[in-house]
Amino acid sequence: MESAGDWCLIESDPGVFTQLIKKFGVKGVQVEEIWKIDDEIFDNLRPVHGLIFLFKYLQQDEPPLPVVKDKLLEKIYFAKQVINNACATQAVISLLLNCNHPDIDLGPELTKLKEFSMSFDPKMRGLTLSNSQTIRSAHNSMSQQTIFEFDPKVASKDEDAYHFVGYIPIDGRLYELDGLRDGPIDHGPIAPQQDWLDVVRPIIMKRINVYTEGEIHFNLMALVSDRKMVYERQIADMLKDPQSLGMDATEIDLEVRRLRSLIENEEVKMQRYQKEMARRRHNYLPFIVTLLKILAEEKKLMPLYEKAKERASKKGAKRMKV
């Protein structure tokens, strides 16, 4: 793969992705983790603009349907992944650039990127994305603090590789956007009155079922409208025309209180995301070295080491039995 500088690995975490999107300059959207694929969890997050799916990548994992390579690429923004470790950013940007919703403001950087490269072929779009200093800087700002450096040349050949793809409805059809393919994968039409999430649900479940029993290394996240913005809009609509709701004053007051409580929860969550990111970026090495020195001086280091070694050995033996 061609490179435009080093791109770090990004953790599959809704807080990381939400802050990454803000770094791009996008407004009106955030990312939420999905623990189970059912109507109830999606009902609390609507509108859902797209899904980001993380899975263990298999070399033999072929697309179930042919990829789109015709004139539809003039309407669908699909970029070929041309650099390593960029699939997380590639997945979220692919969704954002195919969203057409009034809640979402792409901001100047992504708007300029789309306008400049929309006429390009997928590979040239990928090269344009990879050469954006703003996008690469935003991507790398999400990296965790590395305490030790490892030589990639001695990495295990059996090491698992993971990959991000996106699912999104476009013009009444469901598409899978995977930067390692030559184009979008068309999963077929969405009926006029059908929820696109009902179409994508069995596709994701089928993909999960390909893997061996006990495999849990999957992650699903939803690209949704900014929850605080949605709740504030709901409050404004209620107070603007309360009579049309068919609710009495007490019911309206209770609902407004509930929505304000949800807004406070969102504010707390965003503060937590910022703290978690600060912890990811913090260098704990001086603290660890000092702690090890103190434990060694107090003759506690080796007993703790032996205890940890024994515990690891027991876990390994238990795993072998299973």
Rank of each mutant, 00 (worst) to 15 (best):
Y211W: 10
T212Y: 10
T212D: 14
T212M: 08
E213C: 05
E213M: 09
E213V: 10
G214F: 04
I216T: 15
I216Y: 09
I216W: 03
I216R: 13
I216A: 15
H217R: 15
F218Y: 11
N219P: 03
N219T: 08
M221Q: 14
L223I: 13
L223N: 02
L223S: 06
L223W: 01
R227V: 04
R227G: 01
R227L: 13
K228M: 09
K228H: 03
M229Y: 02
Y231D: 01
E232Q: 13
E232I: 00
R233L: 07
Q234L: 08
I235T: 03
A236V: 03
D237Q: 12
D237T: 07
L239P: 02
D241Q: 10
D241C: 06
P242D: 04
Q243L: 05
L245Q: 09
L245C: 02
G246D: 08
G246W: 03
A249W: 01
T250P: 04
T250M: 10
E251W: 06
E251N: 04
E251S: 12
I252L: 14
E255P: 00
R257H: 09
R260Y: 06
L262H: 08
E264M: 14
E266S: 07
E266M: 13
V268R: 12
K269C: 13
M270Q: 15
R272V: 14
Y273C: 09
Y273N: 10
Q274S: 13
K275H: 11
K275A: 15
K275G: 04
E276H: 11
E276F: 13
A278G: 07
R279V: 05
R280P: 01
R280F: 10
R281H: 10
R281Q: 15
H282L: 12
H282T: 12
H282I: 11
Y284P: 00
L285Y: 05
I288A: 11
I288V: 11
V289E: 14
V289P: 00
V289D: 03
V289A: 03
T290M: 09
T290V: 11
T290P: 00
T290Q: 14
L291V: 03
L291R: 15
L292H: 10
I294E: 12
I294K: 07
L295T: 04
L295F: 06
A296I: 05
K300N: 05
L301Y: 01
M302I: 12
